[in-house]
């Protein structure tokens, strides 16, 4: 009996071993795919211009802040940085302001077309933005929204909204309805129960999805480049100017762009899993 089980287990392990190797290899490859460019970017951003242009490349940063400092003093960078933060901030407020109520409704109420609605929310991400660029630009010029922070933020909100809806949907679904019901029987109105019981429990998750919306806007370049001229965001600004800049400045620009996004995403990674229903990892 025991030997039989042991043999069975052994065969199972034999079958599983190649599969597991493949799995591990895939993970290493994916990590390298993401990490190698980030590593090189950081190394080069923190090196002096000479080191950047030298060959063979050094894999250890020189810890020279020269490039970064120069980059930050470059005309218009700080303005673009401010625009980026402003647009991302508005996007964050709009995405959560609109997305959280939708997520709550999805998690708490039964209504016709609920399943379709959830799919549609995701589908909006499948619609290519370049296709919309021209009509959008025309419409924005007509309404006077072109080249404004709020105009760009509205476009970014449409990009961030699906995620805001899905993440908050999953957050609210994680709060048992009984908690709200208990609050109702203890004298709360629906609204009171929401902010006394549900809100404190979902606040960390809401903050996380707000950060995520922020990062989506921060990273977006296409709409930003098309819809702004004077008030460029950092991404659009870099796209325009770095083409003609020396190599070490490109690296510094790239690092300034990528690193905040990375830190933010890393901080809220737990809640991004929640979007796919793998809560509490």
């Amino acid at each position: 009996m025991t030997t039989a089980t042991a043999t069975a287990a052994a065969t199972a392990a034999d079958i599983r071993r190649p599969a597991r190797l493949l799995f591990a290899a895939t993970i290493v490859l994916l990590c390298a795919w993401v990490l190698a460019p980030i590593y090189l970017l950081t190394v080069n951003a923190l090196s002096s211009p000479d080191q950047v242009n030298a060959f063979p490349k050094s894999f250890v940063p020189g810890f020279e802040m020269g490039s970064i400092t120069f980059f930050l003093q470059f005309g218009g960078v700080l303005r673009a940085l401010f625009n980026s933060i402003l647009v991302a901030g508005i996007t964050m407020v709009l995405a959560i302001g609109l997305g959280a109520p939708a997520g709550y409704a999805l998690s708490r109420f039964e209504f016709r077309g609920k399943g379709t609605f959830r799919i549609m929310v995701l589908m909006t991400r499948a619609f290519p933005l370049p296709l919309l660029a021209l009509p959008l630009a025309v419409m924005f010029i007509r309404t006077g929204l072109d080249d404004t922070a709020i105009g760009l933020a509205i476009v970014h909100t449409t990009l961030a909204l699906p995620f805001a809806v899905l993440i908050t949907f999953s957050l609210f679904s994680g709060i048992p309805v009984e908690l709200e019901e208990a609050a109702w029987t203890l004298g709360c109105t629906r609204l009171q129960a929401f902010y006394k019981v549900v809100l404190p429990l979902v606040l960390p998750g809401i903050a996380a999805s707000a950060v995520f919306a922020f990062v989506i806007s921060w990273n977006e370049v296409f709409a930003a480049a098309v819809l702004t001229i004077e008030n460029r965001t950092l991404t659009a600004f870099l796209l325009q100017n770095l083409d003609v800049s020396p190599l070490h400045l490109k690296f510094a620009g790239g690092a300034v762009l990528v690193v905040p996004a990375l830190i933010f995403i890393f901080a809220v990674r737990k809640y991004l899993f929640a979007m796919w229903g793998i809560a509490n990892r």
């Binding site: 908690l179 019901e181 609050a183």
Partner: peptide, 8 residues
């Protein structure tokens, strides 16, 4: 409530 519903 059957499943308590204590506010965590």
């Amino acid at each position: 409530f059957q499943n308590y519903a204590i506010f965590p």
